[in-house]
């Protein structure tokens, strides 16, 4: 044997690929351990009865059957959540659009206004929630005090069956500044010559808004729509801090009920099946959103 064992030399490409995988390794471990693993475990748990103190027991579809046939709170919390999504999301988009249109004007001190509109959206949610409990406080709060000054007796807000959800939505709308900034960026991407062309064609301001601004903005609005549907289906913290689900469970949102099932009642299997229902519902809704997008979202590349 003349040659010592040849060291396995890697080609440059192989070495590069290896480095690539190594650099991705920390994320990969996290992805497997904290995302894929738990998602799969959650699916399996959904078919089990597991209350931590007793050993897990396979129950097949029992959790799902219970949820749909024997659990009034499940339907109620889903209803409350749908109310929240259906009212909040459109208002959120409208508010963000109006604010962005307003900020896209020429006016003195526009940077200051932009900051003022934006800042509420970065307020820590718990601090914001506590602040809003005080603002909505029926007797001494800012809103009802102001209403009383002009002779109107305001509602009980968080203590009212009718007004508790609108109150939470009102607070959430205060944080529309984040979406506003995205719309503003979209507005600034609308080519000026389109407005000029429309003007030459005799379009009035409203027509220009309808036929230039909205189509050009539709991808941005779609982006916000998709994200805010996903986020508002998971509304949790404001209700947890501000109402605890009350009064009379009028703000018992899906996530809040799931949290109670899992971490108060320790009904882990049941909670896991609830999580999967939400996951599938949100996924389906997102797909529907994408499906419907072709009807109203305008992508430049397709046309010209």
């Amino acid at each position: 044997m003349t040659n010592a064992q040849p060291k396995p030399r890697l080609t440059n490409a192989a070495r590069e690929a290896l480095t690539c995988y190594l650099f991705l390794l920390p994320w990969g471990i996290g992805f497997l351990a904290f995302v894929i693993g738990p998602v799969a475990a959650s699916f399996v748990l959904g078919f089990m009865d597991y209350e931590i103190v007793t050993p897990a027991r396979w129950v097949g579809l029992a959790n799902y059957i219970d949820l749909f046939t024997d659990d009034a709170r499940f339907g109620m919390s889903m209803g409350n959540t749908l109310y929240y999504v259906l009212v909040f999301v459109p208002l959120h988009i409208v508010v963000a659009l109006l604010l962005a249109l307003l900020l896209n004007q020429k006016a003195r001190g526009i940077a200051v206004y932009r900051t003022l509109f934006y800042v509420p959206s970065i307020v820590p949610i718990v601090a914001g929630a506590i602040l809003w409990v005080w603002i909505l406080q029926p007797e001494w709060g800012l809103i009802n005090s102001t209403l009383r000054s002009v002779g109107i007796e305001g509602p009980l807000w968080l203590a009212s069956l009718t007004w508790s959800k609108p109150a939470l939505i009102l607070m959430a709308l205060w944080g529309s500044g984040a979406a506003m900034i995205i719309v503003l960026a979209g507005l600034q991407g609308v080519p000026q010559h389109l407005y000029e062309a429309a003007e030459i064609d005799g379009a009035n301001p409203w027509q220009r808004f309808q036929h230039v601004t909205i189509p050009m903005l539709s991808p941005t609005l779609f982006f916000i729509l998709v994200l805010s549907v996903i986020a508002s289906f998971q509304v949790f913290t404001t209700a947890y801090v501000m109402t605890g689900g009350g009064p009379a469970e009028s703000t018992l949102f899906y996530m809040l009920y799931l949290y109670r099932r899992a971490f108060v009642l320790l009904d882990m299997g049941y909670a896991a099946s609830m999580a999967w229902i939400l996951f599938v519902a949100v996924l389906a809704l997102t797909l529907v959103n994408f499906k419907l997008a072709s009807r109203w979202v305008y992508y430049e590349a397709e046309q010209s």
């Binding site: 526009i110 940077a111 959206s121 970065i122 900034i181 507005l187 600034q188 301001p205 994200l227 986020a231």
Partner: peptide, 26 residues
Amino acid sequence: IREPAIEALPSREIHPSARGRPLRRL
């Protein structure tokens, strides 16, 4: 899911021209 990260734009870019004309006319 996290809220998309959100940020302000430089004020210069906001009104380089009369982009917001429709609304302002209104």
